[in-house]
Simulated scan of single mutants.
Amino acid sequence: MPRRGRMCIFLKVGLGRFDQDSYETRIWSPDKKSYIFIQNGIWGAYSINSPAGTIALQLASGGTGAKDAFGARTNLGLGNSATRDIGTTANTVAAGNDSRIVNAVQHSEFTSGPGWVRFPEGTIIQTGTIVVGPLSSPTAISFPIPFTQMGYKVTTSFDQASGSANDCPSFAVSPQAVNWAYFMSSRTNGVNAGCNWIAVGK
């Protein structure tokens, strides 16, 4: 009976790229200038080129492209706030109710006084109650503070509209400057009229 032959298959493996000693296993690059290392609980990449040292995993490969926290923050586009804790003292990130924010908004951006308020973007609202003359006798009224430009708007109402009032005059306003305007009522009997007014502008 003929003896059967045994078929053997040999696989060529590039074992020359593998090194191992008592503390580390290395897989070398084709040019033998860098390698991946695995130690007990630690792994990474290393270059023997000058300057020699560990290699950071690139951003495109899912790393940070850096070997320290500062470099990682820089590559990821993170600012200084990434290193600050939330708190109420200097060099901390302010929370929404932090006095540094609350006081800045209340004291620096919003300003106000008797009969006026100025919003952070520059809009001014002014109010008042005045007595103005009848037709043909306008009264010059000064605003609590001047606007910064012409184009402000004024709305008015009669301040004595009640069950005992025998008329309900309307009012006309003619702005003259950033700090004053003419007010006049629709009364024709020579009697002045009380007027509530609101002026809005910048």
Rank of each mutant, 00 (worst) to 15 (best):
S185Q: 06
R73P: 05
G87T: 01
T74S: 12
G5W: 01
S61Q: 11
W197N: 04
V173R: 00
C8W: 01
N196I: 02
P175I: 02
I38T: 05
E109D: 11
Q149C: 15
N75T: 00
R6V: 02
P169C: 03
M184R: 04
I36D: 06
Q39K: 15
G53N: 12
D68E: 08
S112A: 15
T89C: 07
A45Y: 07
G96K: 00
I42M: 15
W197K: 01
D19P: 08
T148S: 15
G133K: 03
P51C: 10
D167K: 11
T92L: 02
I125G: 06
N40L: 13
G128W: 01
L59V: 01
G190K: 11
T127P: 06
R187Q: 12
I38N: 08
Q160D: 14
V173C: 03
N166S: 11
Y35N: 08
G41R: 12
N80W: 11
C195Y: 00
G77T: 00
M150N: 04
T188I: 05
I145G: 09
L11C: 15
G151V: 01
A181C: 12
P144G: 07
A45C: 10
S157N: 13
V173F: 02
W28V: 07
V154R: 01
A69E: 13
S61M: 09
D167C: 09
Q20P: 00
T92I: 02
D167R: 14
E24G: 08
R3K: 14
R118M: 13
A177F: 08
S162N: 10
G5F: 02
R84M: 12
F37P: 01
L57G: 10
S185A: 09
V178S: 02
C8K: 06
K32N: 12
P114G: 09
L78A: 05
T148F: 13
V117W: 00
T88E: 13
